[in-house]
Write a protein that binds this DNA or RNA. Structure first.
Length: 191
DNA sequence: AAGAAGATTAAA
DNA sequence: TTAATCTTCTTG
């Protein structure tokens, strides 16, 4: 897929409007990606891979584009990323929010008592739980483990907004980099 | 070997 | 505002 040859910032924008699909024994869940964040490897203080830091966890970021990178954070949550950039260039895109399309009942089942549909997937930890993503997916590749992407809605450039990323106050000069992208006026973006 | 902090969330 | 509580990095 030549999608994976795009520069990470371009890919982060291209992913908006695409449908992310996960099928396992419980069934199929899917949603439109409405919010992403780019993490640009060695030069990006906010990235896990800043300075080419290489550990069992970040190892996956050095793999080829299209590899799935999931990690555990705050002791309770899974975040779902797609590795981008060339091999040995540890860049990745964090999926922050999606808009549920299929398998909404399965999502509610996984999340427990959720009243509003929008609450299912409007944050990185939430969408991971709703979609059934776990640490076991880290290092696997898209299309090879029941997870895939599909072209869905074309999002024109004027419908895309950019701004600073969330939750990286420690990142000094990188705090203000406008590497977060979302679809304008979409109710399913986080916060 | 032990402690601190983090790409978060839900509940008070 | 805070608790929940896991992985990795830092320091001793």
């Amino acid at each position: 897929m030549d999608l994976w040859n795009l520069p990470t910032l371009e890919l982060a924008k291209r992913l908006l409007g695409m449908e992310l699909i996960h099928t396992n024994q419980q069934g199929t869940t899917s949603g439109i990606i409405v919010e992403t964040e780019a993490y640009l490897g060695p030069e990006d203080r906010a990235a896990h891979s800043f300075g080419n830091r290489r550990t069992p966890r970040t190892e996956v970021m050095f793999h080829e584009a299209g590899t799935i990178y999931t990690y555990f954070i705050y002791g309770m949550h899974v975040c779902f990323n797609i590795v981008s950039g060339p091999i040995d260039k540890p860049e990745a895109i964090l999926i922050r929010a999606i808009q549920p399309v299929n398998g909404i009942e399965i999502m509610k089942d996984r999340r427990g008592n959720i009243k509003k549909e929008v609450q299912l997937t409007n944050g990185p930890g939430k969408l991971s739980k709703s979609m059934g993503f776990s640490l076991e997916h880290s290092g696997l590749k898209m299309n090879e483990c029941g997870i895939c992407l599909k072209e869905k809605v074309a999002v024109p450039p004027q419908e895309i907004e950019a701004g600073p990323r969330i939750g990286i106050q420690y990142a000094e000069e990188a705090i203000h980099f406008p590497y977060r992208f979302w679809i304008k006026n979409n109710p399913y973006v986080s916060r």
